[in-house]
C-alpha cells in the first residue's frame, strides 16, 4: 500500500514540476510586449551604439581639413598585429626648416582586432575609435584604408 501511495505521488509530483515549467513559458507566451528581438536592418535609424563602442579606427578631421597626427609611429609600434602602417614625408616649412609629416596613415581593417591599444598610445589623440560596424565589403582590398584625408594638414596647436 505504501509503495502504491509513493508510486502515485511520484507521478503527481512529476506532473506538477512539468506544469510549473509550462507556467514559465506560458507566462512569456501571453506577454508579447516582453519580446526582446531587435529588427536590425529596419531599426538602423534609431540604432545607437554606446559611445565607447569600438567599430573601427578613424582619424577625425576638423572643418579646415586638419588632423592631429604627427606621424610619430607610436600607434604602429603598439599595434599587435601590424594593422597600421605610417608613411611619412619630408616637407619644407614656410620658415625654411625641413620637417617630417604624415604622408599616409594606412589602416588594415581586415587585420585589426579592435584592441584599442593604438588609440590609448596615441600621444596627440589623433586617432579614435569609430562607431561604424557595418564593414562588409565585396573585396578585401577595400578594407585597407588611408585614414588621413588627401590634402589634410597637421593642426596648428599640436605639440610634437
Amino acid at each position: 500500500m505504501k509503495a502504491l501511495i509513493q508510486y502515485i505521488s511520484t507521478i503527481l509530483q512529476g506532473l506538477l514540476t512539468l506544469v510549473k515549467g509550462m507556467a514559465v513559458t506560458g507566462h512569456y507566451f501571453f506577454r508579447p510586449k516582453l519580446i526582446t528581438t531587435q529588427q536590425y536592418p529596419e531599426n538602423r535609424q534609431t540604432l545607437k551604439m554606446f559611445d565607447r563602442f569600438r567599430g573601427e579606427v578613424i582619424m577625425p578631421h576638423d572643418e579646415n581639413n586638419h588632423h592631429k597626427c604627427t606621424g610619430c609611429g607610436i600607434c604602429e609600434m603598439n599595434c599587435p598585429n601590424g594593422s597600421i602602417e605610417i608613411i611619412t614625408k619630408m616637407i619644407e616649412t614656410p620658415e625654411g626648416k625641413k620637417k617630417k609629416v604624415i604622408d599616409k596613415h594606412i589602416y588594415h581593417l581586415g587585420m585589426c582586432t579592435l584592441c584599442n591599444l593604438c588609440v590609448k598610445a596615441c600621444p596627440t589623440g589623433a586617432i579614435v575609435m569609430g562607431q561604424k560596424f557595418e564593414h562588409a565589403v565585396w573585396d578585401r582590398t577595400q578594407l585597407t584604408k588611408v585614414l588621413n584625408q588627401p590634402g589634410s594638414e597637421l593642426m596648428k596647436d599640436v605639440k610634437e
Binding site: 554606446f50 565607447r52 563602442f53 584592441c115 590609448k120 575609435m129
Partner: peptide, 24 residues
C-alpha cells in the same frame, strides 16, 4: 560591458597597471 569597455566579447579591458577606461 559595451558601455564601459567598448566591446562585448573580446573586452581587452585590463592593462598592466590598471584598466583601459574608467567606469562609465
Amino acid at each position: 560591458f559595451e558601455e564601459t569597455c567598448g566591446a562585448r566579447l573580446t573586452l581587452n579591458y585590463s592593462t598592466p597597471g590598471g584598466v583601459m577606461f574608467d567606469l562609465h
